[in-house]
Computed example of a mutant assay.
Amino acid sequence: MSWLERIRPALSFLTKKETPDNLWTKCRGCGQMNFHRELVDNMNVCPRCDFHERIGPKERFRQIFDGGNYERLATPSVTEDPLKFRDQKKYTDRIKAARAATGDPEAFAIAEGRIEGTSAVVGVQNFAYMGGSMGMGVGEAFIAGAEAALNSRAPYVVFTAAGGARMQEGLLSLMQMPRATVLTSLLREAGLPYVVVITDPTTGGVTASYAMLGDVHIAEPGALIGFAGQRVIEQTIREKLPEGFQRAEYLHEHGMVDMVVHRKRLKAQLGSLLGVLTHAPAKAA
């Protein structure tokens, strides 16, 4: 009798239901397996290679607001599937699947709270929801967040993460670019800070609109940032692009973003920045 056969009866109480499916998470940076609880405690940053994993609104709000306390703001409802679009699946089925997977009604969530003592409205784009694609729902949510900031006379902080415009809504999705641009102008006219935190990945129409219109641009380490993909650009200009092109560090070196900040220092950096921009008294260390 082998050792496995001898101990098998003792392991019979471990049913499949009692064994978590997400006990381990493979790092997309170094490929190593991380214990899920350890990864969460490390703010979803790989403890081995420092790779920043993508996170959704709930985790982002918990990390960024003081004490993890905040109030979720309602996002306006929009017409679903205005073009009756269908590719391999119905657009309505894709929406249902995204909502079931994320628990959010859209790819953009907004909340209000305090960051190092400064009141702020925060918008978070969720890449897990159809690649964070920008459609009418995202546009309305972004506008609702900006209007809440205007009403509260508070800074507006937006975390971007998107693959671009949502093709299932055609021109209606592209119209969200100028609409969002108008609101950033209103924030500027009102003298309210608009700060953008660019996370991995931020591409397409989001990069071409509100992701690059902030008063200050912060990027997370290693974040992919750009409009068109690297391969498309190389085929267009018929030249090989530099190593790390479109990554946060490269863009920081070339002046496209103001700073690259590790997730563990992000809350403190935002708090300091918002304090300066709102002329709030300096908080004691």
Rank of each mutant, 00 (worst) to 15 (best):
G68D: 10
A162H: 00
A128K: 13
T102I: 04
M167C: 09
A165W: 00
S12L: 11
R153M: 09
I7Y: 01
Y210N: 05
A10F: 14
A128P: 00
R48L: 13
K58A: 15
D87Q: 11
E169Q: 12
G164C: 08
R94H: 09
P155L: 03
L241V: 09
G131M: 06
I237T: 10
L251I: 09
T203K: 05
P76W: 09
V257I: 11
M259S: 13
R99I: 09
E53D: 13
P201K: 02
E220S: 09
I110N: 01
R238S: 14
L224Y: 11
M33V: 08
L251Q: 04
E18Q: 15
V216C: 07
E71S: 12
T202D: 01
D104M: 14
P193S: 07
E140M: 14
R94N: 12
S77I: 00
L277R: 04
F227D: 15
T203C: 04
P221L: 11
P76M: 06
V122P: 05
P76E: 05
Q32N: 13
F142P: 03
G56T: 10
G68A: 03
G145D: 00
Q269H: 12
A101N: 14
L251C: 02
G132Q: 02
G191W: 09
A97K: 15
G139C: 05
N42M: 00
G191T: 06
V182C: 01
T19Y: 09
R28C: 08
Y210I: 13
T202M: 07
P47L: 10
N22P: 04
F85K: 08
E59C: 02
R60Q: 15
E147K: 15
C27E: 08
C46M: 04
E140Y: 11
A248I: 01
R265N: 15
Q88N: 12
V158G: 00
T207W: 02
T102V: 07
G163K: 07
P178S: 01
R238Y: 10
L172G: 03
D66N: 01
T184G: 02
E38C: 12
A161N: 03
